[in-house]
């Protein structure tokens, strides 16, 4: 049975011609196979997110961004706990969790989220996040498909990266993924504006985003677009 699931997924990924694979298909096929509302794949470095490989919609993109910015959420937990993390009712969870993540996710229409670790043997890469716009658990079939999908995605990421020149990110990951480069560019700019190091600049940007109830990526975008200048802000900004 797991063999059939895997075959079905692989056939959809590479198609009848088997002429290469786009990373966005990893998430698209996951949604197609499981029938959930959306999916995203996050890479983790240590216990922190480093960016997303693919997303299927603006909402799944937001889920990845929130987790990247806040360092919490289903993918972060699935990766760190090394097991699936299932929340069938985000607005009314049995265990209170993700205090910062849940509000904006619910506002965007997320009702249930499920994280599955991406791993090959003992090597942990990140996690797959599925979300639904309705409350309710995954069926056994959906759960089994998600596990196989996470496994396939983990191997796909490693195979792609194994073929990349040393020191560079695989071009498929580079073009298909979102590694929040704008946040790091903005951190460099704010560091110069405030004459502080980049770590402190990042803290200042996070603080500003939190105080103004904005996403870190949006604040960073404004910095890079030179709409927002940290050296011209009042102290309580």
């Amino acid at each position: 049975m797991p063999g059939e699931r895997r075959l079905g997924i692989l056939t959809r990924l590479v198609g009848p011609t088997a002429s290469g694979m786009e990373t966005k298909l990893l998430c698209a096929v996951c949604v197609e196979v499981t029938g959930v509302t959306g999916a995203g794949i996050m890479l983790m470095s240590g216990d922190m997110p480093s960016g997303s490989v693919c997303t299927t919609s603006t909402v799944s993109e937001l889920i990845e961004k929130l987790q990247y910015e806040l360092g919490e959420g289903p993918s972060v937990d699935a990766h760190n706990k090394d097991r699936p993390v299932l929340e069938p009712d985000l607005a009314d969870p049995k265990v209170p969790r993700w205090l910062a993540f849940s509000g904006p996710a619910i506002t965007a229409g997320v009702r249930a989220v499920f994280g599955f670790p991406l791993q090959v043997g003992a090597v942990r890469l990140g996690a797959l996040t599925l979300y639904c716009d309705r409350v309710g658990p995954l069926t056994d079939d959906q759960h089994a498909d998600a596990l196989v999908m996470a496994d396939v995605a983990a191997q796909a990421v490693l195979v792609l990266q194994a073929n990349a020149p040393l020191g560079t990110l695989a071009s498929e990951l580079e073009t298909g993924g979102d590694f929040q480069y704008v946040v790091h560019q903005a951190a460099g700019m704010v560091a110069v504006q405030l004459d502080v190091n980049v770590a402190d600049a990042m803290i200042r940007m996070r603080g500003h985003a939190f105080a103004h109830d904005r996403r870190l990526a949006d604040v960073a975008g404004d910095v890079v677009a030179r709409v927002l200048h940290f050296d011209e802000l009042d102290l309580d900004d």
Binding site: S50, L125, V157, L158, G167, Q185, V190, A191, V192, V224
Partner: peptide, 24 residues
């Protein structure tokens, strides 16, 4: 490979930060 992946990502982060500093 996973270590190489993380290294490549970390390199990119540092490069983006330096770009931001120079741009500013």
């Amino acid at each position: 490979v996973n270590e190489q992946l993380n290294q490549a990502l970390n390199s990119r982060i540092v490069i983006e930060q330096a770009k931001g500093m120079i741009a500013q």
